[in-house]
Design a protein around this nucleic acid. Sequence first.
DNA 1: TCAGGTTCTCAGCGGGTTCACAGCGACCCC
DNA 2: GGGGTCGCTGTGAACCCGCTGAGAACCTGA
Lengths: 226, 226
Amino acid sequence: MVPCDAGRVRLLVIEDETRLALALQRGLVAEGFVVDVRHDGPSGLQEARFGGYDAVVLDIMLPGMSGYDVVRTLRAEQVWVPVLMLSAKDGEYDQADGLDYGADDYLTKPFSFVVLLARLRALLRRGATAREPVLTVGDIELDPALREVRRAGEPVALSPRELTLLEYLLRHRDRVVGKVELLDHVWDSAQDVDPNAVEVYVGYLRRKLGRDAIRTVRGAGYTVRR
Amino acid sequence: MVPCDAGRVRLLVIEDETRLALALQRGLVAEGFVVDVRHDGPSGLQEARFGGYDAVVLDIMLPGMSGYDVVRTLRAEQVWVPVLMLSAKDGEYDQADGLDYGADDYLTKPFSFVVLLARLRALLRRGATAREPVLTVGDIELDPALREVRRAGEPVALSPRELTLLEYLLRHRDRVVGKVELLDHVWDSAQDVDPNAVEVYVGYLRRKLGRDAIRTVRGAGYTVRR
DNA sequence: TCAGGTTCTCAGCGGGTTCACAGCGACCCC
DNA sequence: GGGGTCGCTGTGAACCCGCTGAGAACCTGA
């Protein structure tokens, strides 16, 4: 999909304040976008899910369902449309939360229309490749959407099994993960695979990512170093 | 389970000041949560135990039983529901205590409702996988999830048996633990192991954690010093 | 069909871990 | 103070766990 096909870019605005919603719609239409508006969380979510928009402008305070929950639901359903969040709050927590939930950018009310336009264009340029947050630990990054791993910025080639194993370890980096658990979730057949396979694959990962990327906790399992 | 499935998230508020309790309930209901309220420690504990809530907002000063005791009891009973504690105090110690006992986050009165909401959402996002609390006594900390032990902040390497033994002692720090009991629970075979093994391992722990980390109660067993 | 990559088993090695043993020291009671 | 009990610790041997290289089976795309 080419999102910036001129004059055909479709936007969804989810905003309950009718005055603001109308102003946004007018302004954006004047800029050549096709704009749909929804006024509450649930119907906005529904529309964002199936509307095939190139980007969504999303207020946080919404009737029925907060903007946070809308993005989070979308991302959980693997919908990666770019989302620009709007909020009257400006606390640290709120911003962090919005981005954590999977929003791509964040704007605090009141904002100038020009700024909104600039950010929106930046998002559209980046394209619909908005993606699951990259898992990071130390100098190792794993992009779940691209299934790509980098070490100190340099790409590292991993086999599917290696990548799945690393992903599981990164997603549970706050605790020790046992070998049987890994067999369950990474091999999905704890029965007929030798636990030694886990050791072998940890060995492969260490060879590619550095000796101390994965720590052995003898008698318990493995953890990624923090 | 998806805890934030909009409109179905169930919260329990344990707060004895009726005005505050009512305000919280109203605010949270307006945000789409299902909210139950209890006004004292014991009934709150009972409800938290069996109510199947997605999170608990818990005051510290409560009639009948302190908030500290409520979390501690819940965690001791392996109930891992996320707990957000509220307190009028703001001393460093109180905060540390609350988190030590197994609370997941901490808010000092007076707080803004927006902040409470943000923290609560953060907790719900983390999900019911709230981490097991770190066991602490003196300058010794044991993180059961990471299987990691620190003394005065410095990591200490323990073998699996050593760690299991220390964990059992810490989990029963309020009483003397007999050697046979330790053989039962740490060695899970009280029959064919010499009770002297316990003495040996206590010796190992003392060597690594300090001579007086574990106190001998002659004729009865061992306790960790408090 | 062949080449290259991936998955996983196998077996051996090395070192940490577990625990019995035995001698010694500490404590308690008479 | 003396004897007995209980707990502590150094030594050492068997054991277990995790690591690794080699290689077989398998899959996949050219």
